[in-house]
């Protein structure tokens, strides 16, 4: 059973529906005690870092998430959930959860033909192996909608990149945590496969 954290940051029902499509049971909750008992956590989210952090702190979900991470519970971050796991975000100069060292930064693009938000289908290239990216092929594309992206301090935490006026981190990971800037729930069959792999993942680099 997967626990999807609802912290008032966008429509998380789409993640639950995508799990159902691949036969994975998932519940949606904003209750920190439910999160504390979770076997597996998806941390999705769309929106701005400051209001998201405010809500997480107010509800105690921030503490529950940190504890789950420290307790080795497999966690999958998506979009905003891949950004606020870092130390801080440029969006409102917000201090974030600090599960992974680094910072979320805004696209700085000189080319006027490249638009922000970065919205649409783009290729994701794995830069090192990870169980959740197992089987990803050159040319595989995923759906993005964002103006900020995660920038881990240590390059060894970067697992995949995409390109928009230069390479940026599209997926990062640390121990039992893996997170992606794109939306697996809106990326067709290839995205659903990532959710399937997460359902089987034991939280280590080998399985």
């Amino acid at each position: 059973m997967i626990t999807i954290i609802d912290y008032n940051a966008g429509n998380i029902k789409s993640v639950q529906r995508a799990c159902a499509e691949v036969g994975v049971q998932a519940i949606v909750t904003s209750d920190p005690t439910t999160v504390a008992k979770a076997e597996k956590i998806i941390f999705p989210g769309v929106g701005a870092a400051p209001s998201a952090m405010e809500y997480l702190k107010k509800t105690g979900l921030d503490v529950a998430l940190v504890k789950a991470f420290e307790g080795g519970i497999p966690i999958l971050g998506i979009c905003l959930g891949a950004q606020i796991i870092l130390d801080s975000s440029e969006e409102g100069n917000q201090k974030c959860l600090g599960l992974v060292a680094g910072k979320t930064v805004r696209f700085r693009i000189r080319d006027k033909l490249l638009k922000i938000p970065h919205m649409g289908w783009n290729e994701v290239k794995a830069v090192q192996p990870h169980p959740l990216l197992d089987g990803i092929q050159p040319g595989d594309e995923f759906y993005f909608v964002h103006s900020y992206y995660p920038q881990p301090a240590d390059k060894k935490d970067v697992y995949a990149v995409s390109s928009h006026g230069g390479d940026f981190c599209a997926a990062l990971g640390s121990r039992n945590l893996f997170a992606m800037q794109f939306h697996p729930e809106k990326s067709g069959p290839l995205g659903l496969q990532i959710l399937e792999r997460f359902a089987r993942w034991n939280g280590t680099l080998t399985g």
Binding site: K13, S14, R17, E21, Y143, E185, K186, S187, G188, P189
Partner: peptide, 8 residues
Amino acid sequence: VARQIFIP
């Protein structure tokens, strides 16, 4: 529709 298709 949202239960059936997983693209935008």
